[in-house]
Write a protein that binds this DNA or RNA. Structure first.
Lengths: 135, 135
DNA sequence: GTCTTGCTCAACCATGTGGTTGATTAAACG
DNA sequence: CGTTTAATCAACCACATGGTTGAGCAAGAC
């Protein structure tokens, strides 16, 4: 990934790591400091600090200050971004599935010989629009 | 990621790439062959083939056979896995937020001086259970 | 059989990622 | 002041990732 500045990529990327996912899970229960977060894992504090940086850059957490401590707070809003993306295409896929069922039902007993042009199993291109278009 | 065998990591990881996300988006509209999928992108067919392998290993798509073509089909079921994970912690975070509001409301005008032990900003550890436990 | 099409495999390269250790900053404690 | 605590920065390492090109393979076309 030479260029990976887009939001969704960073969020998905951040959640692609089990340790980070576990941190998010724990932060959902309440804020925690870096060392508190680090405690259960068999890695250095620095490694955890790095993980937090990734989560922060993805907009999943915020780090504030309390003396030398840096309480970490989960920002659950970004979840919506993901859910929206996922749901959009899940719905689309499901709809297509339903339509396919209908087509199959209608096709029962019909001639399915399309020697004319056996390729083009779909028309995805036509319906496609880049992900930035809507939300 | 030295070890990345768990499902959720692979799914999130697969979706952390804009090209792969775009492919998923297009596949939601209908199946497509590798070259059809590759067409819009400025990368080699081999690169696209690799992306598809990642999506396949994440359980997001299935590749079948039709002569020399390999129609790719989106398997939207895995989306549920993600949504469940996300929703679980989003809900938890929201609940906590609501409870925090109540606590703050109750605290109005009270003495908030806890010089006794200024640390321990949360009790995440207690409530935490590993992500494998439920779904 | 040979050619062409559609795709994958293999090797390679640059960059990213997750981990390490060591040094450093910042604030509280003595 | 110097020390301890909490966390970050910096340099480094092994391996993963995303891209490339070139070769190979399987199935239809000729």
């Amino acid at each position: 990934m030479v260029e990976q500045d887009d939001r969704l990529s960073r969020v998905f990327g951040a959640l692609a790591d089990p340790t980070r996912r576990d941190m998010v899970a724990r932060l959902a229960a309440g804020d925690a400091t870096v060392s508190e977060l680090a405690a259960p894992y068999a890695v250095s504090l620095q490694a955890v600090s790095k993980h937090l940086k990734v989560l922060e850059e993805a907009g999943l957490v915020q780090r504030s200050r309390d003396a030398q401590r840096r309480p970490v707070h989960l920002d659950a809003e970004v979840f919506d971004l993901m859910t929206k993306w996922i749901e959009r295409y899940r719905r689309q896929a499901e709809e297509r599935y339903r339509r396919l069922d209908q087509v199959l039902a209608r096709m029962q007993g019909k001639d399915i010989d399309d020697t004319d042009d056996p390729r083009r199993p779909n028309d995805a291109e036509r319906q496609h629009r880049p992900e930035g278009a809507a939300g």
